[in-house]
Design a protein around this nucleic acid. Structure first.
Length: 1164
RNA sequence: AGGCGGGUAGCUCAGUCGGGAGAGCGCAGCCCUUACAAGGCUGAGGUCACGGGUUCGAGUCCCGUCCCGCCUACCA
């Protein structure tokens, strides 16, 4: 007997999260592709701390991961982080600014050093938070989008796309952030409504015949105007088309990007994109500073005049305004226009303004040269649409051989082995009556055994095999008519004689009715082997062609996100991937200064491991262009960033190349390598060629890796300064983490992944790009299910944000209420298609639930004798309440499994909550107290044995149910369940998280007993309710009587009387034929109950209750009567509905009668 | 402007196939009963946003209106 004290979540959670990591419980070294369940974490970026959205995301994934793992799948959940280019650079830049410096002063190399110093601190913080949440990820597989392997993969991806013509460099209008001094993709711009002004400006006609008025919100861009456009059908302006206007204020020559002079006399052009209704119907055209104008400018071959620099200051084209900030320039320009009488009017105007998602600076549309991925190319877009819209069908034809074995005296033994531990859980012995067995190899029906001469049975076997194959596949099936036995831990269970079909499918051994094919029960879960034996055998082989069809489709859950995704895909624009920042993957392009050609280098240009590694170090900026062997050694021997337990070199071998395992690189071997290569004598040494790849500079005493232009051989190369959009690397995540571009075992067994859980806000940023890159590079979808979860909002429905100050920090919640409570709360609030409104209060309720679990377990453990296990063989028969709780337990297992299959987290959580609290704690535990607390009489041996046997039964059931309930709860509340589970005497194994997830077992369903207990609950509640109305204190034991005309009710009451006495606090409950003196009556269904009361009681309240009940019954009766007196209803409604209504009517009438009787007595 | 989601108890939300309106929290009353006061028992509380339609029957399906939220586009 042990008292486990009170629930202390901090201690428990800390202990187990450490345990899971230290023991690497969730690491799977070599997953079996058939049983794997793979999932990659949406990499949280390294800048943020974990917010509620991350906590929700991680919780939902972990619930599915733990559940799948317990169901026998080998779950590989890969964690990691992304480097968040702009966001990280922004954070570090701010730190530097605080020191009074700028990144430009610091220089690229020094700046990156600072970032690398900062990133691990931030990353550690996030990792710790994940650990606190209890995520069951495989930390040994952790990756980073900027690690050595990913950097290499990114370069390879860039090269492949470039060589396929899917990446191009071009002059294009982009969203430019003048603060971060970089281009942004469309998705990185947030639009916000803002109050501004609309200025109407007069552009005088060249011939002096008047002017044309244009409207603008950004007057400063007028300096870059190269045309005025009107609609071709606009009668107001039709006559002006082709004429020219003089651009006001501009008296200087402006130049285009290529240096040509541009006149201040600009044409009036016609373009259908101009909206006649807007403004004046005439629009100024600034091709270099407006997306629309850019299009118009291109079509009309207008000159492009850029008037601002990278910091949005006016440039030399702005003449007298040059050097001014864009807003200052706007002010002055408006002023000047007003002075010159060219400002017609000024209106207040609300319009939406694009801002940088990171620093909130207003973006400036600007023409610049950028790199783009041609995602609109059918090779990318069409596939990405197809895999979501309808799926890609893949067909593979092959010849299969079906062995038909005619046998005599067939018997079969089927050992079932636990998925995780490998222990044999059960052996099914079929020693007679086996009719046939059919088995599958590599997804094809491979053999059928059948009795000699029984072609009919063979046909039946074939038919069943095809039917099950269609249903979802199976490993083998056995048809039998007879009885058989299942042996578990030396205990044999016989299954009654009958016609059965035993099917091993989806990691379960299922029993079906042989005729109706109704599912009877799961015999056992795990991997089953087939061991047939026979007296004689004759084998024939049947050959046939088989077409293997596989559908590759990505499913969005909830489904409506599919439309969201497709709409975007159909309106896709090319993806700007270059960013003018320093933190990220530098674009692997080297421009030839001599022949101007573009060279893309990757380590594929080299074939020796040394060259490859050195090239990667340079390209990653880990070493400079000039280096010494010692520097290389130092880098390679230093701890790796992602996995500090290994060196950089080891990381290269394990995670980047997946080979060269015996290669070592130190300063000496490098020096030798370089000198051999540089030494002309080496030319004479067979096997070593001098490629002149390395060159020594005796002055600096440093080596250099010489890259040459692939076209002209020039060494005069300059690497592109820009880096890639972070999402470019994130797009490679689902296969990059498994070792792409190498063809690794992990890729073969883990890609495509099974599930992606993410928020809708990054469907375009990330999900779509993963689908694009996944289908392009891997020729397969990156994941089959995408579960899109809600946004976490505050209690008022507003987004949580630091600036609003309404964030709830998951860490605070974990500290106060525990990670289990946090997880359970998030899960139970997760309803598809609805955002989560969160307030701190909500966590409290579910902490109470955790507490409840703890205390129920405490009760059980407190009353469990030390020799409990050895008493089990002597336990008494189970009682109805035992069988009832087993029934409810199995119903709950079924409900939770079903809900989780549909990603219905709320329903799953509700089911287990309801079961544990309302059924198990409130009723079952209370019912067991009678058996658990009963003192066994010392003197009476027989009686003592009986009482103890009864107690053992109660405890056995309590333990049995608790243990299974803990397993059901585990995916939701991993810590508390792990803790309690280890304290159970029956606990066997290292962790509950590798135990089997409960399934409904038909042999534990007892509907009859369940019905009895439900009825008992009603009766008890009726008595309690009466007591409450009479305001009798709960502790007082009262006498009561009952009367019923139904025999079954009487039997039930007599059988369960002890419960009624205990639960309703009665002294006695005797049958009477009429209402005894001094009692107050009530009823429950057909059962009349008389409660004896002493002295004066206040019956006012009771009367009130009954009057209310009477009215309710009356109104319901009215509804039912209305229905039943409607001829159409009787005629058209289904028979069972009509009968149901009739039944309801009878019940209501009976109830009304009873209420009236009670009331009339009360009135006396 | 277009699209999507939502409007059910005081609050937060479930509600399957169209067939007796549910849960949690909160509230009220009674109770420290040997797991738990972070608890037990009992109870009150609803014009299912509004209007129309389909139907024997509508919270559920259809149309319209009004609110709320989000997304996309335009915004000279």
């Amino acid at each position: 007997m042990k008292d486990i004290g009170e629930y202390r979540h901090r201690e428990i959670e800390e202990r187990w999260s450490r345990f899971w990591i230290e023991k690497a419980i969730y690491h799977v070294e070599k997953p079996d592709p058939k049983r794997k369940f793979s999932i990659v974490i949406p990499p949280p970026n390294v800048t943020g701390s974990l917010h509620m959205g991350h906590a929700l995301n991680a919780t939902l994934q972990d619930i599915i991961a733990r559940w799948q793992r317990m169901k026998g799948r080998q779950v590989v959940w890969v964690p990691g982080f992304d480097h968040a280019g702009i966001a990280t650079q922004y954070v570090v830049e701010r730190q530097i600014q605080e020191e009074g410096k700028s990144r430009l002063e610091l220089g690229r190399e020094e700046f990156l050093k600072r970032v690398w110093e900062w990133v691990p601190r931030s990353r550690e913080a996030i990792r710790t938070q994940f650990e606190k949440l209890g995520v069951s990820v495989d930390w040994k597989r952790e990756r980073f989008t900027l690690d050595e392997g990913f950097s290499r993969a990114v370069r390879r991806a860039f090269r492949e796309l470039y060589e396929a013509g899917l990446i191009y460099r071009g002059e294009y209008i982009v969203n430019w952030c003048p603060r971060d001094r970089t281009a942004l993709s469309d998705l990185e711009v947030e639009h916000e409504e803002e109050k501004g002004k609309l200025w109407y400006i007069r552009y005088p006609l060249e011939d002096g015949s008047g002017y044309i008025t244009v409207a603008t919100t950004r007057p400063e861009t007028m300096l870059g105007d190269t045309a005025v456009a009107v609609h071709p059908e606009d009668i107001r302006y039709k006559h002006l088309i082709g004429k020219r206007v003089r651009l006001p204020l501009v008296s200087w020559k402006r130049r285009t990007l290529s240096g040509e002079e541009v006149d201040e006399l600009i044409p009036i052009i016609a373009d259908e994109r101009v909206k006649m209704e807007f403004g004046t119907g005439a629009v100024k055209v600034t091709p270099a500073h407006d997306p629309n104008d850019f299009e118009i400018g291109k079509d009309h071959k207008l000159p492009f005049v850029k008037v601002m620099d990278e910091g949005a200051r006016m440039n030399e084209n702005a003449g007298e305004f040059a050097g001014l900030d864009r807003y200052e320039a706007r002010r002055r320009i408006v002023e000047r226009l007003r002075e010159e009488g060219l400002l017609e009017k000024e209106e207040d105007y609300v319009h939406s303004v694009g801002k940088c998602y990171r620093c909130k600076t207003v973006v400036e549309p600007m023409v610049s040269v950028q790199w783009f991925v041609r995602v609109t190319d059918p090779r990318i877009r069409s596939t990405s649409i197809k895999v979501v819209e309808e799926g890609l069908l893949e067909k593979e034809e092959r010849e299969v051989h079906l062995q038909l074995a005619e046998v005599q005296g067939l018997t079969v033994t089927v050992p079932v082995v636990d998925d995780v531990s490998g222990h044999t859980k059960a052996v099914v012995v079929l020693s007679e009556g086996v009719e046939f067995l059919a088995g599958v190899r590599e997804g094809e029906l491979a053999y059928i055994y059948y009795p000699e001469g029984r072609k009919d049975i063979l046909e039946r076997a074939k038919e069943l095999a095809y039917r099950f194959a269609e249903k979802g596949g199976f490993e083998f099936l056995i048809g039998l008519e007879g009885e058989f036995s299942v042996i578990r831990q030396g205990l044999e269970t016989r299954i009654d004689r009958g016609k059965y079909l035993l099917v091993h499918e989806g990691g379960k051994l299922n029993l079906y009715d042989g005729d109706t094919l109704r599912h009877i029960q799961v015999i056992e879960t795990g991997q089953a082997r087939l061991e047939p034996a026979q007296k004689s055998i004759k084998v024939k082989v049947e050959r046939k062609k088989s077409v293997l069809e596989r559908k590759r489709q990505v499913f969005f859950i909830p489904e409506h996100w599919k439309k969201f995704y497709l709409d975007w895909m159909y309106n896709l624009k090319d993806w700007c991937i270059s960013r003018q920042i320093w933190w990220g993957h530098r674009i692997p392009v080297w421009y030839c200064e001599d022949c101007r050609s573009v060279n893309v280098f990757t380590d594929d240009d080299f074939d020796r491991p040394y060259d490859k590694i050195i090239f990667n170090l340079i390209a990653d900026g880990k070493i400079g262009n000039e280096f010494t062997p010692e520097e290389i050694e130092k880098v390679l021997k230093s701890p790796n960033f992602v996995h500090p337990e290994m060196t950089v070199l080891e990381f290269y071998k394990k995670f980047a190349f997946h080979k060269y395992h015996s290669t070592d690189m130190d300063a000496n071997s490098l020096r030798l390598f370089f000198t051999q290569e540089a030494n002309p004598v080496a030319m004479l040494t067979p096997g070593i060629s001098t490629r002149g790849l390395y060159r020594y500079d005796p002055k600096t005493k440093r080596w250099r890796m010489v890259l040459r232009c692939k076209r002209c051989g020039s060494e005069n190369l300059k690497q592109e300064e820009d880096v890639l959009d972070t999402w470019f690397s994130s797009a490679l995540w689902p296969f990059g983490v498994f070792g792409w571009p190498e063809n690794t075992e992990d890729i073969r067994s883990l890609y495509p992944t099974d599930l992606l859980v993410t928020g809708f806000d990054i469907i375009f940023f990330w999900v779509a790009r993963m689908i694009m890159m996944g289908t392009y590079f891997m020729k397969d979808i990156p994941f089959s299910d995408v579960y899109v979860h809600a946004l976490v909002r505050d209690e008022k429905g507003q987004k949580m944000s630091k600036t609003k100050g309404n964030v709830i920090d998951p860490l605070d919640i974990i500290e106060k209420y525990g990670a289990d409570a946090l997880r359970f709360t998030l899960a139970i609030l997760t309803v598809q298609g609805r955002d989560i409104r969160l307030s701190e209060k909500r966590f409290e309720g579910y902490k109470h639930f955790a507490n409840k679990i703890w205390n129920a377990s405490r009760y059980i453990l407190m009353n469990t004798p030390d020799d409990f296990l050895s008493r089990i063989p002597y336990m008494a028969q189970m009682r109805p309440e035992d069988r009832w709780i087993l029934t409810r337990l199995n119903e709950t297992a079924e409900a939770v499994n079903k809900a989780l299959e549909n990603y219905d987290f709320s329903k799953a959580a509700h089911a287990i909550y309801e079961f544990f609290w309302s059924d198990f704690c409130d009723w079952y535990i209370e019912m067991t107290k009678e058996r658990v607390y009963r003192k066994a009489p010392e003197e009476n041996e027989e009686e003592r044995t009986r009482v103890e046997a009864e107690r053992t039964t109660a405890l056995y059931t309590l333990h049995y149910v608790l243990e299974k309930a803990l397993r059901i709860l585990h995916p939701f509340m991993p810590f508390i369940t792990e803790e309690i589970w280890h304290r159970l005497p029956s606990a066997d194994g290292e962790t509950i998280s590798l135990k089997e997830f409960p399934e409904k077992r038909q042999d534990e369903m007892f509907p009859e007993d369940a019905g009895k207990i439900e009825r008992l609950r009603e009766i008890v509640t009726a008595v309690r309710s009466l007591r409450s109305d009479l305001q009798i204190e709960p502790s007082k034991r009262l006498k009561a009587y009952y009367r019923t005309e139904r025999r079954e009710t009487k039997t039930l009451v007599e059988e369960l009387k002890h419960h009624i006495l205990n639960l309703a606090r009665l002294e006695a409950f005797e049958e009477v034929s009429g209402k005894p003196e001094g009692t107050v009556s009530t009823f429950s269904g057909d059962l009349e109950i008389f409660l004896s009361v002493e002295g004066e009681v206040d019956i006012g309240r009771l009367k009130e209750t009954y009057r209310r009940r009477r009215e309710k019954v009356l109104s319901e009766l009215e509804r039912v009567n209305r229905k039943l007196s409607n001829e159409n209803f009787l005629k058209k409604a289904p028979q069972e509905v009509v009968e149901k209504e009739r039944r309801i009517k009878e019940e209501l009438e009976e109830e009304l009668m009873k209420i009236d009787r009670v009331l009339s007595i009360l009135e006396d």
